[in-house]
Amino acid sequence: MKNLNDITKNNAFNVPENYFESFSLELESRISEENLKKKFGNKNPFRVPINYFENFTVQLNSKKGKIIQLLKPWLSAAAGIIIIFALWQFLLTDIINTNKQAQNHDSLQTNNSSFIANNTLNIDDIDIKYLDPEVNAFIDETDASQIYEYTNEDSSEETVNPEDESTYEYFIDYADDNDFTELLAEL
């Protein structure tokens, strides 16, 4: 910097936003305020009872204590409600779970029934394996329905057809072999 002429003469200072716009309003307020103060003063016209501030803390603490005492039954009640609610929730969850299990069981049964209803089990589809390789070979070679007939052959009761000739012959043979009176007695 060589001399003063090197410095621009621009105003480097600024004012708060809307300062000049609100200035006259503020000035007017100040004048009115001054007039009021001249007439009425701004001394606090109120007072407090003797030792009010000295005793205030004691009063406040007793009020605080009273509030705590007042809140205690409510807090106990709230705690009780929370416990009941928690128990209820626990029981409710338990009941819901039991119901869900029962429902699952029911739906499983329904599913099973519908599965059975919808899926016919074909005996030929069952792959049966026995320890004895000869039995296995026989099963593989034979149709399953034949095996069924074969295995039930002994247990099946012979049906008697009265019109069948063999039945008639059977009764004749029976009559020859047994005394007829005995036969009548048996009947």
Binding site: F40, G41, K43, P45, F46, R47, V48, P49
Partner: peptide
């Protein structure tokens, strides 16, 4: 009892 202002202060209040 706890207001000790004069007439002017009462008007102001």
């Amino acid at each position: 009892d706890y207001f000790e202002g004069d007439k002017a202060q009462l008007i102001l209040q």
